[in-house]
Design a binder for these strands. Structure first.
Lengths: 134, 134
DNA sequence: CCGCTCACTGAAAGCCATTGTCACTAAGTG
DNA sequence: CACTTAGTGACAATGGCTTTCAGTGAGCGG
């Protein structure tokens, strides 16, 4: 599973298109949205490829992903490697990256107290942003 | 949308079956699992009804639900109304309810600072429990 | 350049939890 | 006992995502 066997990664047009798009857009977008955007700009990339490329990029730590309550996965270019969470507007999808080292520590500690190892966590904050309110 | 118009709730056999089952089982289970359990005990309740009943119960605050990373929704009888999060074992599904008032406060505050209103959040902690480790 | 291999592609089919449809059933009321 | 209408459930549909598999083309050695 994702083990670099011969480890050769090829530079394909499709990969470049996806990366180029991600460099231009801001905020989170779903694989489907990104695929539609690519179609709009005449970049012929299959949906399957979009999914695979996004997965690869996430694994490589170049993309950042969130999951909406509905289960849909969103992606966006990772500004930096630091672990963070998201404050997302339910209306417009505007996203703010937030940091909560205390939360991380709390989660790890708590899990440790209960004998859990290999601990990870998910946390997303939802609300309606100022723009969408008034 | 879930607005109590005439607001009459009927006591049906199916509802009772689901509730009875939930009273007996511990931990989180998916709608599909619960449906299968009901079949095993000869309780004839349709899958659709199981889903609807669970939804109603969650809205009424009588059930507690989590979502697995895979997107599957899990339900369990709510021990108490207090807002809490879950520490879930990736292997066996064992769940520990955890409280983090500080986290709640942090999330609300942070959202407020960014001008967000009507704020909610999700947080789940995953790991492997002591039993599953060895 | 040429040919070859294998990573990569993508259309279509599959998967799977969940939701919608709609004719039917029965709870609770008068 | 009617009778209204909440509730039911078999089935179809949805939707995001994954798998399949017959190709295509990136990059390398010759």
């Amino acid at each position: 599973m994702s083990e670099a066997t011969t480890g050769t990664t090829r530079n394909t047009r499709q990969r470049a298109e996806v990366l180029a798009l991600l460099r231009e857009v801001d905020g989170f977008h779903s694989a489907q949205q990104l695929h539609r955007m690519l179609q709009d700009r005449q970049a012929r990339v299959g949906l399957t490829t979009v999914y695979r490329t996004l997965q690869v990029l996430v694994e490589a730590g170049e993309l950042d992903s969130t999951k909406l309550p509905g289960g849909e996965q969103l992606y966006r270019r990772c500004s930096q490697g630091r672990h963070h969470h998201h404050l997302v507007c339910r209306e417009c999808g505007r996203t703010v990256e937030v940091y909560g080292p205390a939360v991380e520590r709390w989660a790890d500690q708590l899990a440790g107290q209960h004998g859990f190892i290999d601990v990870g966590h998910t946390m997303e904050i939802f609300g309606v942003c100022a723009t969408c309110t008034g």
